[in-house]
Amino acid sequence: MSKPLTKTQLVAALAEEMDTDKKSANAALEAITTIITKEVSNGGAVTLPGVGKIMCRARPERMVRNPATGEQIQKPADKVVKMTIAKALKDSVNG
């Protein structure tokens, strides 16, 4: 398994794909990240065509166990960010 791309490598690949400089590619990546963060933190969802859907889901209050002590404790309700991978991406990886 190969290592994941770093931000620098991603910006360089994006600049090459867009046929632009790294500064513009970095600005585009930052803008996309900002938009996704704002939308998901406000309870919305963002679909990246061909990649997947990023959304915020609410988790109910539940009982969890402390693995160190075995003690059962009540964990309050919270929100978690989830990503559903697009079928096109799954298919390209598997075949």
Rank of each mutant, 00 (worst) to 15 (best):
I73D: 09
R57Y: 00
E39Y: 02
R59Q: 12
N26C: 00
M1S: 12
V40W: 09
L14F: 13
G52F: 01
A13G: 09
I36Y: 01
S92G: 09
E30I: 10
R59S: 06
K75E: 11
V51P: 01
K87E: 05
D91T: 05
T69Y: 11
E17L: 03
M63S: 07
A45C: 09
T20A: 11
K90T: 01
S41K: 13
A45Q: 14
I85Q: 06
C56Y: 02
K53M: 09
A31L: 15
I32C: 10
A58F: 10
L5D: 09
T84R: 15
M83K: 01
K38F: 08
K7E: 10
P49F: 06
G95C: 06
K82D: 06
N26A: 15
K87C: 01
I35P: 01
R57C: 05
S24E: 09
T47R: 15
T33Y: 05
G70Q: 10
C56N: 13
Q74K: 14
A88Q: 13
C56L: 14
P4F: 05
G50V: 04
D19C: 07
A86H: 14
V46H: 09
M55E: 14
M83F: 10
V93R: 03
K82Q: 11
A27M: 14
K22I: 09
L5T: 03
I32E: 04
E61R: 11
K3D: 12
A15T: 02
M55A: 11
L48K: 00
P4T: 08
M18Q: 15
N94I: 02
L10W: 04
N42L: 10
K75V: 06
M55P: 01
E17Q: 09
N26T: 10
E17N: 09
C56V: 08
R59H: 00
T33F: 03
V51Q: 04
A31Y: 11
I35C: 05
K22T: 08
V46M: 13
M83T: 12
K22A: 10
S24H: 13
A28T: 11
G44R: 14
V46T: 11
E61M: 13
